[in-house]
């Protein structure tokens, strides 16, 4: 059973992440009925830490302290939080539909960076799938 799961981990792991991110995107809708976004973000950060930190008990030897790796993640977190602030700023000035649609296109930037710096290649079906995914997000966000 575990061997079969491991064999299919290349598909199962991103799908599990997809479903969980769907839940992550859905629940704030309910939470915002009783609290402001910045308060939700505060409790969300504790929830994330609660989910991840216990896993460290199963990991002997403590955290790997690689300066480059940790710096990259620190930069990523700073950029991500700045991105959220830019998003909120844009939301103040523009309509939710337009701003959400424009910002939902960020995977295009990721794909471009992956192609330029990591030289990742997609076959033609995967390019088509990526294009359909962007159209799908555009339709859902609009």
């Amino acid at each position: 059973m575990i061997a079969r799961l491991k064999a299919h981990s290349g598909v199962l792991l991103p799908l599990a992440a997809l479903v969980l991110w769907g839940i992550w995107a859905f629940l704030p809708k309910l939470a915002m009925q009783s609290m402001q976004p910045h308060s939700i973000l505060f409790y969300e950060s504790f929830g994330g830490a609660m989910a991840v930190l216990p896993l460290l008990f199963f990991n002997k030897g403590g955290l790997v302290r690689d300066k480059k790796g940790v710096s990259l993640l620190f930069c990523g977190s700073c950029l991500s939080i700045t991105g959220i602030l830019c998003y909120y700023t844009a939301l103040k000035a523009g309509s939710v539909a337009t701003v959400t649609t424009v910002t939902a296109m960020y995977p295009v930037v990721v794909m471009a960076l992956a192609r330029i710096f990591l030289r990742e290649e997609l076959n033609r079906w995967q390019w088509l799938a990526a294009a359909l995914a962007m159209v799908s997000v555009y339709l859902l966000a609009g």
Binding site: S9, L13, A17, E44, G47, G48, M50, R115, A130
Partner: peptide, 27 residues
């Protein structure tokens, strides 16, 4: 609910990072 948002987001991130080890970033 906000705590659950964090739990689902944190777990999703873990699965995503595990998947990123073996699959391409674009995929």
């Amino acid at each position: 609910l906000a705590g659950l948002v964090g739990v689902s987001g944190g777990t999703a991130q873990l699965f995503y990072n595990l998947s990123l080890r073996n699959n391409s970033l674009t995929y």
